[in-house]
Design a protein around this nucleic acid. Structure first.
Lengths: 142, 142
DNA sequence: TTGCTTGCAAAGTTTTTGCAGGCGC
DNA sequence: GCGCCTGCAAAAACTTTGCAAGCAA
C-alpha cells in the first residue's frame, strides 16, 4: 500500500470514520470479491449499527479515491475488490464464486484498441467463466 | 446465420410468435447493444401492445438457444447482442455507448487459464472503457 | 383443443436518496 | 461549533413472477 487509507481520505476532503475504515478492512482482508450485502453481513458482528446504505456510500468513496475496483461478473449485483492492480477474474458458473486471474499478458491490447477504434482507452475488465475445482468434483459424483 | 430463428425456436420446444421474431430482429438489426428498455422503446411503433416483461422473457429464451449474448458493461442494466461470435466490447465512460472490438487475439488465454487456475473454462467477456471519438471532440471545445 | 405465450400488474432485488441526529475535526 | 457523515426509511431502477385471456400448432 503506497499510502494508507486515512491519509487518502483526508487528502481528498473526506472524513475518517470507523465505518469507512471497517469497510475497507473487510475488503482488504478477503479474496472473495464480496458484494455490498456480503460486506454488510460480515461487519454485522463488529459493527451492529452499520447500515447497507453506508456500505454503498463508502464503497463509492473508496472507488473514487482509487482504493477499490468495481466488478461486474455477469450477476445481478456488483462485486468489489481492494486489489486495484490490473488483473482478470473468473467466476464459477455453478457456485458463483469469483477468483483472481493474474499474469495475463494484455499489454498489446492497448495498442490494438488504439488502432481498431477511435476511443481513448482508460480502463479494462476481463472476465472468464468456468467451473471451479470444487464444482467439477461435485459433478463427477453424479 | 447457420439456422434461422424459427427453426431454432421450434426445435427447442418454443412456439414461434410475432413478439419473439420482433425482438430478435430488433437485436439483429442494430449495433447499439441495446438494453431491454431500448428494445422495448424501439418496438413501440410497430408493436404497441408489446410489454417490457415479454422483452425480458424473450431475451431469456434467445439466450438459452444461443442466439443472443448478454453483456455487463458496468452499468445498472444488462445489454444484449445478437452477434454471438466471440468479440470484446468497449464502452464510452462519457456517453455510455457500447461498441464492438473485433480481432483481439485472446486464443492463448485459454491455455493460460488452464495452467493458472483449476477451472474448466466455458466462456469469457472482455470489456474496455474509454472515451469515444464524439466525446473527445466535445471535450476539446471546452 | 391444448397448453404455451402474452401483457398487465404486483412483487422482488439491488442501489440510491432524503433527512434528522451524531460525530470528526 | 460547523459541516460532513451515519442510519433509517422511502424511493428508484431494473428484472421477475402470477395470472387470466389469447394464440400457435
Amino acid at each position: 500500500m503506497v499510502q494508507n487509507i486515512t491519509e487518502l481520505l483526508r487528502s481528498n476532503g473526506f472524513k475518517v470514520t470507523p465505518q469507512r475504515l471497517a469497510v475497507y478492512e473487510a475488503l482488504a482482508n478477503t479474496k472473495e470479491h464480496p458484494n455490498a450485502e456480503m460486506i454488510f453481513n460480515g461487519l454485522q458482528a463488529t459493527y451492529p449499527t452499520m447500515s447497507l446504505a453506508t456500505v454503498y456510500k463508502t464503497i463509492d468513496i473508496l472507488h473514487e479515491i482509487g482504493l477499490v475496483q468495481i466488478l461486474n461478473a455477469g450477476e445481478d449485483s456488483f462485486r468489489y475488490d481492494a486489489d486495484v492492480s490490473e488483473h482478470a477474474h473468473i467466476r464459477c458458473v455453478e457456485c458463483g464464486r469469483v477468483d483472481d486471474v493474474f499474469d495475463l499478458d494484455t499489454a498489446k491490447f492497448n495498442e490494438q484498441i488504439q488502432q481498431n477504434t477511435k476511443y481513448r482507452l482508460v480502463g479494462q475488465q476481463f472476465y472468464f467463466y468456468g467451473v471451479c475445482a470444487d464444482c467439477q468434483k461435485t459433478s463427477e459424483t453424479h
